[in-house]
Amino acid sequence: LASLPSVKMAILKRRRAVGGSPVPRPTASPVSEAELLARSGVRGILREAVLKLLEARPEEPSAFLADYFEKLGQDLAEGAAPHSDHGSYLLGQQRLGRAMWYLRLAHHSQRTAFNNNLSMAYNCLSAGGRKKKPGLNGKSYSEVLRRICREGDLSEDISSVLLKKIQCRDHEAVPFDVFRYGVLTCFVLLEFMSKAEILFRSLDFHEQPDRSLCQAVLGTLEEALVASDISVPASYLEAGSKLGPDCLAVVMDRALLRKDAGVSMTLQEFLQEASALFLHKVKPVL
């Protein structure tokens, strides 16, 4: 007889320890809506989400918010308070996941937002923990780069050339500037590759585009890249004029005239050659 109330007590105690049941108990006086929002902290959560949304200006806001709240939910489930101390007691994989989430939040052309997220990711990765000394090491940095490349479906041979240039050795300490350059370069290369694919499709007016045509267009791009020099502003005009529709039309016409009949180029070859132009300009990390 005495056992029943004690079980009830135990359940009640556990509920209190967990911090309240999901359904709020009816209280004596009815709570106004404003008070409810204030008590639950919803207002702060929503404001944070809207701020992130404004920062990133994504094309599809609802998908962005869904992703945001999903991540927030995961964080709560893992028991880490978001935005409190950048997850100082997160494990390696969780840190990495969190950092990747920050990096994906805004496109790199949203410069302020992207830079903010970069430093959040950097702090998250380099926070000290129980077993980890503070600071970002080359191992986590290279892992972040690898993940960005993998998620962007970058082919293995292109990404390995890129990583060889910008990744660090496992034990090396990575300063923020290097981290920023490495991550940005990965994202920019992914976009470069998607543009190259669209370019290939627009050259492809039969089944497969002509090889000499492809090489002529890429050669023109290479000329422009070599010609443009940041210290000589006029060189950008010159390089830009080379890439105008008129000049490109002439170049393509010339290429078609001396075409080697039937020699075509596959998308893979084209992407490989295009990526080489970009990768050639990547400054290796020393």
């Binding site: 529709p245 490109l248 020393l286």
Partner: peptide, 29 residues
């Protein structure tokens, strides 16, 4: 092929490469 479309894609590729070049860090490890 349509020179306008080709030109627009090539120019974007050029601009992206310049973005990468402009962000090169002077920091070393």
């Amino acid at each position: 092929p349509d020179p306008n479309k080709v030109s627009s894609e090539v120019q974007q590729m050029w601009a992206l490469t310049e973005v990468m070049k402009a962000n090169q860090s002077t920091a070393t490890i």
